[in-house]
């Protein structure tokens, strides 16, 4: 996992992608992150892509897949920190991150995760009471 520094922040996991990853490293990330989520059971995962200088169709698809996988494994995902130039280029290329939640930086992503996981906790509590 040394290629992808992982930081535990309370119930959340923060993972920072480094620039210029090879396709193999991106696929390893999907694998490793799935394992970590199963092991650590965070409520939410923040994926920081602020150091990425490009997000092409391959990485875009992989990020959206990773988000889906992590959600199936029981954690919410927010992708944070996409550079404005990367966002403009990705949209013009015709790719989007689909239904994946995104936020401008780690702070607002964390806030989003808190809201998301809070509502699911209270929902669970409410259904437990009924």
């Amino acid at each position: 996992m040394e290629q992808f520094p992982v930081l535990a922040v309370g119930d959340f996991m923060l993972i920072s992608l480094r620039e210029d990853m090879s396709d193999t490293q991106v696929m390893n990330l999907q694998d490793e992150l799935s394992k970590q989520v199963t092991l650590i059971r965070p409520k939410g995962v923040l994926i920081d892509i602020s150091s990425l200088e490009i997000v092409g169709s391959f990485l875009g698809r992989m990020l959206s897949d990773i988000a889906k996988i992590v959600r199936i494994l029981g954690a919410e995902v927010v992708i944070v920190g996409m550079q404005p130039t990367v966002a403009m280029t990705t949209v013009e290329l015709g790719k989007t991150l689909g239904s994946v939640l995104t936020a401008r930086n780690v702070n607002s992503g964390m806030g989003m995760l808190r809201l998301k996981t809070m509502s699911s906790t209270s929902l669970a509590a409410a259904s437990g009471r009924s």
Partner: peptide
């Protein structure tokens, strides 16, 4: 940077 990013992304694809 935007011009660089667009060109590099196209080359990468």
């Amino acid at each position: 940077i935007l011009e660089q990013t667009k060109m590099v992304t196209a080359v990468s694809e």
